[in-house]
Amino acid sequence: MISFIAKRLAQSLLVMAIVSAVSFSLFNFVGDPVNNMVGQDATREQRLEIRDKLGLDDPIITQYSRFVGNMLKAEFGLSYRIKRPVDDLIAERLPATLELVFVSAVISLFFGIILGIYTGIKRNSWISRVILSTSLAGVSLPTFVIGIGLIYLFAVHLRWLPSSGRSGVVALGWWKTSLITLEGWRSIILPAITLSLFQLTLILRLVRAEMMEVMRTDFIKFARARGLSERAINFRHALRNTLVPVITIIGLNIGGLVAFSVVTETVFQWPGTGLMFIQAVNFVDVPIMAAYLVFVALLFVIINLIVDILYFVVDPRIRLGG
């Protein structure tokens, strides 16, 4: 157990080391940091002073270790464009992204697992066929096209829901939430559906494949032979054994949702970290790009680690087999 987790931890640290090296090198490869901070009009003396202050003449190793040191304190300097500390900017926009990802995760997991079980058990019913063909279409629909379609239908044509932005925001301490007002729910529902659809189809297909695999095994045949009810077989025996892969799916799902929140937030002008990242890329705002990269990598490393440990807890075969 301990050696397994230690191995995973070492791998996670390796990922973070590589990602931090990449984001550190962004500062040096993309544009001149001094130029980006003071603009074109600064005198030579001012430039040299800033160079000295930032320690840009130090050896690369010293600079890198300083960067990692700051990274551990979550300090990434000032944004080139907005001139505010990057960690503040991320903290400010994080609730919007996390709430969007949370609502989408609930939608995609709930419907994905239910439809997956249904199509896995009733393989040949016509409803299953319709669901499956629709899911293949869902994989082929780019997220932004779904978003545009929903906006056109519900905001432009029917005028039921707002087309963009995040309204009905209420502050709960430092966390600004939009999940406790009706207005907030009205604005989150379209982006959340957009974001969840692709993941929903993926989950559906994985759960279905897993369910079909389990239904073919001997212990299900034996349960049938014992004369257990269909209900008991499906839920007490089959579903339980599909739960291990479902844990991975949840991990992958949250990862995918965070990644595609960049696209969804742009379509709906949702004020989260993804939109901030795209704007930073447009303006080559390196501190934000670097911070976002480290932040996302950290999120993924943590998710993967939790998934690995859960595996261990849930499945005795992995625990015993090492």
Binding site: V15, A259, M289
Partner: peptide, 26 residues
């Protein structure tokens, strides 16, 4: 393979946006 693993921890679309952004900026 470690390199591939590391890259697979970050979703493709984010990486593409990043590589593309850096490429353009360079």
């Amino acid at each position: 393979m470690r390199l591939a693993d590391v890259q697979l921890t970050i979703p493709g679309i984010l990486l593409a946006i990043l590589i593309n952004g850096v490429g353009r900026a360079a």
